[in-house]
């Protein structure tokens, strides 16, 4: 199984995969991460084809779909992480889509779990996945009324200040800290500490 294969034989196997990918999809950029991890950067029109092919040759476990906001380049980078149980190798299939028109295609027909990953990416980055009719359904952020929070132009501090106004406390934490440190003498009022 996965541990029985050494890095060298995995690497040999991966070289074969690269060559096949090259002949099927033309040039694709492969970034070496470690002995069993490679990132493949593919044009978006070839992404689904490559995912289908990789799934068919054993890279069948979709670990997650995630996204990176490259705000200066005006791109979203979608990353599909595929794992092969038989050799322990991982491919990160990455593609760049237009940040101003963030639409891509669903892969939920290949991997049913993708429905949730796509909802997650939609919620945090605002990317839509055509064909996933539940895509816009809130997953974690119910009643969210701002920019998707993992976009680089989302300002968490401002959001925090607007939604959670400061409260005033009836104590002097520095005075308390100085008592705790033994800098000054005094009693600390307030709740029992520790459970």
């Amino acid at each position: 199984m996965m541990n029985s294969m050494n890095d060298a034989s995995v690497s040999q196997e991966l070289q074969k995969v690269f060559e096949e990918l090259k002949s099927m999809f033309g040039s694709c950029e492969a970034v070496h991460i470690d002995a069993r991890q490679y990132k493949l950067i593919v044009p978006s029109d070839k992404t689904l084809g490559m995912l289908t092919y990789l799934k068919s040759i054993g890279y069948s476990h979709l670990s997650i779909i995630t996204c990176v906001d490259w705000i200066d380049e005006k791109k979203f980078e979608l990353v599909y992480i595929l794992f092969n149980w038989s050799n322990g190798a991982t491919f990160l299939v990455s593609t760049f889509i237009d940040r101003d028109r963030p639409v891509f295609y669903t892969v939920k027909d290949m991997w049913p779990t993708a429905e949730y990953y796509e909802r997650d990416v939609h919620e945090f980055f605002g990317v839509e996945f055509e064909g996933n009719e539940n895509c816009k359904k809130p997953l974690m952020l119910e009643l969210w009324d701002d920019l998707p929070p993992l976009r680089k132009d989302f300002d968490p501090l401002q959001y925090s200040k607007e939604h959670f106004p400061d409260r005033t406390y009836e104590k002097d934490p520095i005075h308390e800290a100085r008592i705790i440190r033994g800098d000054i003498e005094g009693d600390i009022e307030g709740g029992e500490i520790d459970g």
Binding site: Y169, E170, A177, G190, G191, I193
Partner: peptide, 22 residues
């Protein structure tokens, strides 16, 4: 990570070497 109090004031503090739990 465990701390109980009924008083909201207790959740506002200045961390020292002795931490929230003194």
């Amino acid at each position: 990570y465990i701390f109980f109090s009924h008083d909201a004031n207790d959740f506002y503090y200045a961390p020292t070497e002795r931490g929230l739990l003194d």
